[in-house]
Design a protein around this nucleic acid. Structure first.
Lengths: 253, 253
DNA sequence: TAGTGGTCTAGACCACTTA
DNA sequence: AAGTGGTCTAGACCACTAG
C-alpha cells in the first residue's frame, strides 16, 4: 500500500518537521481527504522510521494548524476547511508600525479631566485626572491611523517623556521585554470616521474604518490604559486561510 | 527560594496541565513578570517532581498561548502582553449559525451568467454559468446577516437541493467531515451597507457593517465558491485578550 | 480483545549562550 | 566549561473505541 518514506537524518530540518511536511503533502495531493483516517501512529513510526514521540509531535503540529484532528481510540482524521475556524491577526498593523518609513506625530499629550466615557473605561472618578495622548501614524507622509489613548494619571509616578513618543507605541504593539501591563482586552470594530477623525486622516467623514479598541490592566487588575486605533478600512489587511493551501507549507518549528 | 510544589498524581488533571497551571498562577500573581526568567527546565523538574518531557510540555503550552517565550541557551522568559500579537476568531458567527433559534431563508437560488466580478473571482469566462445563492440569516426573527454566494456551475455534477439550504451553510462554517473544498481564503473588511443589503437586513444604507469574504478552492486549486457575509457591525463580536487575565486560566489540553 | 491515541519516564546527544 | 533549551529514543501504562 504505502511506500516507505524514510526521513533524512542529516537534513537541517528535524525529523518531526519532515514527517509533518510529508503528511501535509499527502493531504495537499488529495491522497488523504477531509474525513479520511490517516495511518495510525504505529504505522507512521514504521513508515518514516522514527519513534512514536516524533510521530506524535508531527501530528500535534498538524492538529494545531487545524489540518487534522484526533479521536481517542479511533484515529487521526483530516479536517475539512471551515470558515468558522478562521483566525485573523494584526500582522498588517505590526508591519505598519515596525516599518522604518512610518512616522508617529504626537498631536496632543496633556493631563486632562476625564470624560464620562473615559471615567467608565478606566474606572476612575471625575475628580481625578488622566493623561490624554493623541497620535497620527503616517506612512510615506500619508496619515493612515489615528490613535487616541488615555492613561490613569498617578502623581506619584509621573510619566517620562518617552512614554508619549514612538517608543511607547511600538512597545504597545510589540514589547520585547518589560511593560507595566499584566493583560489587555482588545476589540475590533467596523465603524465610520467622525468629522474629527476624518480631519486628522485627511479623509471624508462617514468613510468605512477599522477601530481597534484596547484596554490594558496592571497587576492589581486595574485598568491603566484605554485607547483606540482608527484607520480607513483598506489600511488594515485582515486576510487568512483555512485548510491547506499549496504554497507555504508552514511546517516550521 | 522556591517551595516544592508537588503535583497531584491522582487528579483528573494530568501532570503537564498542573505544572502549566502552576506556572501560570505564578505569572498572574506577579511573582514572575514580563521579561523575568523562569526557573530552568531542570529546576522545574525538581520543583514539581516530574520528568523533563512533562515540564517541556507545560512550557510548550504556555509558549503557544503567548504567555512565555524561550531562547535557546538562555532560558524561558515571561512575555509582555502585546497588542500586535492579538488574534481574533469568528466564534460569534459560529454561535449564531449553530444556534437553534437562528433561521436561514433562501432569497434566491438560480443559475445565472456571472458578473464581471464573479468571473474574475471564480476564474470562469462570461460564457459559462454560475449558481447564485442569496440567504438571510435571522436570529429571533430579526435579520442579522445577508449572505451571497456564487458557485461554479458544473452540468455534469448538478447541485442537490440540500446544497442551497441551511445544511450547506452550516457545513461552510463548521464541517464535521467531508467537503469538496481543499482550502479557502478569507478576508474581513469594514464596510457600509448598500441599499440592497440594507433592504434585506431592515437597516438604513450607509450603516457600518462587517464583510466576511470567502473563496474556496477544490483539489485542482480551482476556485469553486465565492461569497460574502454582510451584517451590521454590532452583529459580530471580535474581542480577544493578550497576556494572562485572572479569570479563565485556559490550561486545558 | 485488539487497536487507537494520551501520557509519562529516564536517559541521551545536540546547538546555543555565557562566563 | 557549565548551563540552557531542542530533539530523539524505547518502553511503559492508561482510557477509549470497536468488533
Amino acid at each position: 500500500m504505502s511506500k516507505l518514506r524514510p526521513i533524512d537524518r542529516s537534513s537541517f530540518e528535524p525529523p518531526y518537521a519532515q514527517v509533518a511536511r510529508g503528511m501535509r503533502e499527502r493531504i495537499v495531493n488529495g491522497e488523504y481527504r477531509a474525513g479520511d483516517r490517516l495511518p495510525s501512529e504505529a504505522e507512521l513510526c514504521a513508515l518514516y522510521g522514527v519513534s512514536r514521540m516524533t510521530v506524535r509531535r508531527a501530528v500535534t503540529l498538524l492538529t494545531q494548524d487545524g489540518v487534522v484532528y484526533t479521536e481517542n481510540g479511533r484515529g487521526t482524521f483530516v479536517r475539512a476547511p471551515e470558515l468558522g475556524a478562521a483566525t485573523f491577526d494584526l500582522a498588517s498593523l505590526r508591519r505598519l508600525v515596525d516599518d522604518a518609513a512610518t512616522t508617529v506625530k504626537i498631536i496632543e499629550a496633556r493631563i486632562v479631566p476625564p470624560s464620562p466615557r473615559v471615567c467608565r473605561k478606566l474606572a476612575v472618578d471625575d475628580e481625578s485626572y488622566v493623561v490624554a495622548i493623541k497620535r497620527v501614524l503616517s506612512s510615506a507622509g500619508e496619515p493612515v491611523f489615528y490613535h487616541s489613548e488615555y492613561l490613569v494619571f498617578d502623581p506619584r509616578r509621573p510619566l517620562v517623556e518617552a512614554e508619549y513618543g514612538v517608543t511607547a507605541l511600538r512597545d504597545l504593539l510589540a514589547n520585547a521585554g518589560k511593560s507595566g501591563f499584566k493583560y489587555g482586552r482588545l476589540r475590533l470594530d467596523a465603524s465610520t470616521l467622525t468629522e474629527t477623525e476624518a480631519s486628522y486622516l485627511a479623509e471624508e467623514p462617514g468613510v468605512s474604518a477599522w477601530v481597534i479598541e484596547h484596554l490594558f490592566y496592571d497587576f492589581e487588575n486595574r485598568p491603566v490604559s484605554w485607547g483606540r486605533f482608527i484607520g480607513r478600512s483598506d489600511r488594515l489587511d485582515l486576510s487568512t486561510t483555512v485548510g491547506v493551501p499549496d504554497v507555504g507549507n508552514g511546517a516550521g518549528g
